[in-house]
């Protein structure tokens, strides 16, 4: 999906429902008001003292206005919301790699105090999706949701504008595993993860060998743009795992503690037409030869660090 496709699809949500409407599970009530005010450090006696309340002309308990959106909030669920509780417009960005989220603005407008017994309903509408913005957190889009709150009579009681930034989080570099059980173990050399190659190393974690594809034109190692057309649009294809040894070496020196020597290292030509360097599994140095067919396997060299490896077919 190109950046323009993403924006077009995201903006198709503007003006529509962000989530299905919600009605509060509990009426406005004194215990929840008290707990909320205590948690917020709001000592205003208006929220819990009947005399002060009466002096202000209120018969029953009233809620701090800032609690406007509390009543219709999703239930607390350890581990986060389930997929059906999310917003499709934000999920679209998640799927496109904009997995980071941060709330940037909230504006609330209060039309009246909520009183004990009120049952609040909420409707959320996608108000705006910004152009691509380059922020300190990363590249992303601001998504603005308008909320309208009504009472049990259907009358408006308040509004809220809530803006989040959906962004591509910075690349995280794979750190050598903190291996408490084997503190002297030499760490297996790690690759540098860039925006251009991250898919390859992510794919390996799923035990998939992914090859960059520009409309069927395969390239390895990956490049930002198609060398033939200049297109920045690419997808990946999963290697079948069949290939032949195009060349090889047998390492004797220098040696790293994390390998066994003599160490064959092979350059395999995959049947898809690209070549890749990897190690052999279950083959001795004298069994390796140019032209021999091989099949792909994977080896977990450290916890959660998976590399491709080949076996003689």
């Amino acid at each position: 999906m190109t950046e323009q496709d993403l924006l077009t699809r995201a903006r198709a949500f503007v003006g529509g429902e962000a989530t299905p409407p919600v009605t509060a599970r509990d009426a406005v009530n004194q215990p929840m008001i008290r707990r909320w005010a205590e948690a917020m450090g709001d000592a205003n006696p208006l929220w819990h003292d009947p005399q002060v309340r009466a002096a202000g002309g209120f018969a029953g308990a009233i809620a701090p206005p800032a609690m406007l959106d509390v009543w219709t909030m999703a239930r607390y669920r350890p581990g986060g919301r389930t997929a059906d509780e999310g917003m499709p417009v934000l999920q679209l960005f998640d799927a496109a790699g904009y997995t980071g989220v941060v709330a940037t603005n909230i504006e609330q407008e209060y039309l009246r105090y909520l009183e004990e017994g009120d049952i609040v309903s909420m409707r959320a509408t996608v108000a705006d999706v910004s152009d691509e913005k380059r922020t300190g957190l990363g590249i992303g889009h601001f998504v603005t949701i308008d909320y309208e709150f009504t009472d049990q009579r259907g009358d408006a009681v308040g509004r809220m504008k809530f803006r989040v930034l959906k962004f591509k989080p910075p690349l995280t570099q794979a750190a050598p595993a903190a291996d408490g059980e084997k503190p002297n173990k030499f760490p297996h050399p790690r690759p540098a993860i860039t925006h251009d190659n991250a898919f390859f190393w992510e794919g390996l974690k799923q035990r998939k060998l992914l090859i960059q594809s520009f409309g069927g034109r395969l390239v390895h190692p990956p490049v930002p743009a198609c060398p033939e057309t200049g297109s920045f649009d690419w997808t990946t294809v999963e290697a079948s795992g069949r290939g032949t040894i195009h060349s090889f070496v047998i390492m004797h020196q220098p040696q790293l503690p994390c390998f066994d020597y003599p160490l064959p290292v092979v350059l395999v030509e995959l049947e898809e037409g690209v070549r890749i360097v990897a190690n052999m599994l279950g083959a001795t140095a004298d069994e390796v030869a140019i032209g021999k067919p091989v099949t792909l396997d994977f080896v977990e060299v450290e916890p959660d660090y998976i590399l491709p490896a080949f076996r003689l077919a």
């Binding site: 794979a174 050399p189 790690r190 690759p191 993860i193 860039t194 390998f259 990897a278």
Partner: peptide
């Protein structure tokens, strides 16, 4: 593993002992 193109290059080799 610093995320530059120059170091990323070595990621195709050094994890396999081609160093």
């Amino acid at each position: 593993p610093v995320p530059t193109a120059e170091t990323a290059h070595y990621g195709w080799y050094v994890p396999f002992g081609l160093i």
